[in-house]
């Protein structure tokens, strides 16, 4: 199984992004997704910057994938996505389609792609259609369980690679509204780019202080970190080819090394965290199922 670093979902200052990927270049990760995958307003890095980062990471031996927006509303959003798709093609990289409009554009140009988690693949028939449209890899939606995955992969589809988020906050919802701007009583179009002040989003606590959600602009994430460490044997047995780790401000290098050790059969030494794995077991996503149990 190959180790993947998903797209950076938070909005970091330009130099911090460069520094982060400098560090990533030296880490034992096989695939790196680059580009803006949350909000069309974010612009610390221009497309040319992402392309340059892509070249650097490719030179370091990484497979690079260009991610795209999950919500395409306006003509300018469409243009932005078209530019990213063209850049991916030019660089000989896959693009990650997170929206059916992107799928259409990719299918039209005959460009191979990764079918992102927001495309809602819950059955083998849907996956087959995306394959026919040009998907080479697909990503399991975060809310999908082992049983769902097993069902999809029960129809042998050897040419397709399967990617699963194994570590990171679960992206739970997207809106046209921005909840970070709302926090500061700002209009979305004049948001002052407040996301820059929150390198891992804004914690949302219940009124009794329980960490519940995370605001990340138009995206809402879980508060807990989805974590499938002990499920790796099950993932492997099902035929999963790619394991995604979602970038975090501090922990990413340590997490990447820990998963690499696991893949090599060594003790992981995984750092402690506020973890959840309920989605995998068809339980509430925020729950933690203690024993990896047999799923029929």
């Amino acid at each position: 199984m190959r180790l993947v670093l998903g797209p950076l979902l938070y909005y970091w200052p330009r130099q911090r992004v460069f520094d982060f990927y400098d560090e990533i270049a030296a880490l034992p990760v096989d695939v790196v997704y680059l580009g803006e995958a949350v909000c069309a307003r974010r612009h610390e890095l221009r497309l040319e910057d992402w392309q340059a980062l892509g070249e650097r990471l490719a030179q370091a031996g990484k497979e690079v994938v260009f991610s795209t927006l999950p919500l395409i509303e306006s003509e300018s959003d469409l243009k932005a996505v078209r530019r990213v798709l063209a850049a991916a093609q030019e660089a000989g990289c896959l693009a990650e389609a997170n929206e059916m409009g992107a799928v259409r554009m990719l299918a039209e140009s005959g460009q191979a792609f990764v079918a992102g988690a927001t495309l809602n693949v819950f059955n083998a028939e849907t996956l087959q259609l995306l394959k026919e449209a040009g998907a080479r890899r697909w990503v399991l939606p975060p809310e999908a369980s082992e049983k769902v995955l097993a069902g999809i992969l029960s129809r042998k589809n050897d040419a397709l690679e399967t990617e699963v988020l194994v570590h990171g906050r679960a992206p739970l919802a997207y809106s046209a509204r921005c909840f970070t701007a709302r926090r500061f009583r700002l209009q979305k179009d004049a948001c002052e780019f407040r996301c820059l002040d929150f390198p891992e989003g804004i914690p949302v606590l219940t009124r009794e202080g329980q960490p519940f959600l995370t605001l990340n602009g138009i995206q809402t994430q879980s508060a807990k970190v989805y974590h499938l460490e002990r499920e790796l044997p099950a993932l492997q047995a099902l035929g999963v080819t790619h394991l995604r780790i979602s970038p975090a401000p501090e922990a990413t290098p340590e997490i990447v090394r820990a998963y690499r050790r696991l893949l090599e059969g060594a003790p992981a030494g995984m750092p402690n965290g506020d973890y959840c794995n309920g989605f995998w077991y068809e339980e509430p996503g925020l729950s933690w199922v203690e024993c990896a149990r047999e799923v029929a």
């Binding site: 809310e143 679960a170 739970l172 997207y174 809106s175 809402t220 339980e283 509430p284 996503g285 925020l286």
Partner: peptide, 15 residues
Amino acid sequence: VMVEGRCALSAYATG
């Protein structure tokens, strides 16, 4: 308020 078809908030809390 969320894009329909793109919301797993209820799944996160209740399954």
